[in-house]
Write a protein that binds this DNA or RNA. Structure first.
Length: 498
DNA sequence: CGTGCCGGGCC
DNA sequence: GGCCCGGCACG
């Protein structure tokens, strides 16, 4: 039945139905109206309450509804103007073909025929809640209370509104969802987010991108890592950097660079950083290693700095992905907002490659390696010097001591570290001559020795007890006066050297 | 536990 | 610098 169809349409239509025109009313029964019945019509509904009440209540509501195509159902309460007076009535019949409505006006006891457009609908909020089923079942029934109920179902207007609302909400939700889902991904087009429906597509697309980059998979990490979530701190210096990057094509630095794109800063990246761990994207291009906060940023970097315009879009895009990797950096100090020099920037940070790409290996090397040597070079020398002093204290020729005693090894290992130092004093050099030779012969073990030796120095510095007899043993405690001086002094025996 | 001797104090 | 000794490591 057409009514069903129209009803459905009506639901969708936002328009309220209002039909009468003031001037018209005077005509009485004849109704003229628009031919179009298909439009969704919202009819006021009246649940069989008293007419009077309806009149009072509905006098205005219907008026608010814009005149338009609508459908009237038997039993539906409407208002019509007759002889200059408005009367409430019930729809008896709605002739779609002629677009006329037959209305029963109780007050006059008349059946009036009016054009649809001249009929004003009485609408009540109550009707909104009426379920569809009711409507469906009552369609064909023109009389009886059932008809009245039917009317109620027509209340689509409000419902429709809710629908619209839902749609809006959904849209909003989708946008939000996409935002939250694809934190880092947001491409420079972040501004697009503002846009409506179309955006959605892009967003979803983007989200896919996100997972692609691996950020989505790492979300677990974030949740695990607790800590102060640091929403992107103000990066005031970013702007300048950005400009420099943009304008200086040859600009290549390994430094820690904040994301140049202001849009990206406030986005997902901050969110992801639930704790102090932050995700960065590192350029894998040889000798570059640039760090950026966002995928977009790194992509752009790779594109502009390394790939250039040589290749076509597709190829370039693939290349972009290839030349950067995601890394998690543990940022203990909140210094992230301040620029750092290349050397200091990476050291305190824990760089943890997230992506399985082989290139990631490269990342760790620089940051981890650099601090190590420096630490050793600083600590080792001190111990070394101390040892040397000890040897000197005993006033024994270094050439003899070193080869003879098991300490040799120790000495050598220690010596290795100092060699790293550019300048050795003549004295030191002399005492080290032996060990230095060793070191030159086996440069490859240098690092090992360096690492192992420090601990030894502490405990191993003590001279191993010699096998030879000592003065004490020889002469006995009774003849202490016959001991060598060293023995008397409880020093290393010089008479019976091992 | 005896011994070797380092590290350090006293003069 | 000579002398002495507490204390540790080693066997």
């Amino acid at each position: 039945m057409a009514s069903i169809l129209s009803k459905r349409l009506g639901k969708r239509s936002l328009l309220g139905a209002r039909v009468c025109t003031p001037s018209l009313a005077a005509d009485g029964m004849s109704i003229e109206g628009p031919g179009d019945l298909t439009g969704g019509a919202h009819l006021g509904v009246y649940d069989g309450g008293c007419l009077k009440e309806c009149l009072e209540e509905s006098a205005f509501p219907s008026g608010n509804l814009p005149p338009s195509r609508f459908k009237l159902y038997p039993g539906q309460k409407v208002y019509i103007t007759h002889n200059g007076t408005e009367y409430a009535g019930l729809v008896e019949q709605h002739n779609h073909v002629d677009d006329e409505v037959k209305v029963l006006v109780f007050e006059l006891g008349l059946h009036l025929c009016r054009k649809t457009e001249d009929v004003r609908l009485a609408e009540t909020p109550k009707t909104m809640s009426i379920p569809m089923e009711q409507v469906m079942s009552t369609n064909s029934d023109a009389s009886s209370s059932a008809a009245q109920r039917m009317v109620s179902r027509s209340i689509d207007v409000p419902k429709r509104r809710s629908d619209a609302l839902d749609m809006d909400e959904m849209m909003a939700a989708m946008v939000l969802t996409s935002l939250s889902c694809s934190p880092i991904v947001q491409s420079p087009p972040g501004s697009d987010l503002i846009a409506a429906p179309q955006v959605t597509c892009d967003l979803w697309k983007e989200s896919g991108d996100v997972s692609d980059s691996g950020s989505s998979t790492t979300s677990g990490h974030w949740s695990v890592e607790c800590g102060a979530s640091t929403p992107s701190p103000p990066h005031t210096e970013t702007s300048p950097k950005y400009t420099s990057e943009v304008f200086n094509a040859s600009h290549v630095d390994e430094g820690f660079e904040t994301d140049p794109d202001p849009f990206l800063l406030d986005e997902p990246a901050p969110r992801k950083r639930k704790n102090s761990v932050k995700v960065m994207y590192k350029c894998l291009w040889p000798n570059c290693g640039k760090l950026l906060r966002s995928i977009v940023g790194i992509k752009r970097h790779v594109k502009t700095q390394h790939l250039g315009d040589g290749m076509d879009c597709d190829q370039r895009k693939r290349e972009e992905d290839f030349y950067y990797t995601e890394v998690q950096m543990k940022d203990e100090s909140e210094a992230e907002s301040t620029p750092r020099s290349p050397s200091t920037a990476t050291a305190p940070l824990l760089i943890q490659p997230v992506t399985p790409k082989p290139e990631t290996q490269v990342l760790e090397v620089p940051s981890v390696e650099s601090p190590l040597p420096s630490a050793l070079s600083q600590s080792a020398p001190g111990s070394f010097w101390h040892i040397q002093a000890d040897h000197a204290y005993q006033a024994l020729p270094s050439t003899i001591q070193i080869p003879v005693s098991p300490h040799i090894f120790t000495s050598i290992s220690w010596a290795a570290a100092p060699t790293a130092l550019p300048a050795l004093s003549p004295i030191r050099s002399r005492s080290l001559s032996f060990s230095e030779q060793q070191q030159q012969q086996t440069p490859s073990i240098k690092s090992q020795l360096i690492v192992a030796s420090p601990p030894r120095a502490a405990s191993g510095s003590r001279k191993v007890r010699g096998e030879a007899k000592k003065c004490r043993k020889v002469y006995g405690i009774e003849h202490r006066d016959q001991w060598c001086t060293a023995c008397r002094w409880k020093k290393a025996c010089q008479r019976f050297l091992d």
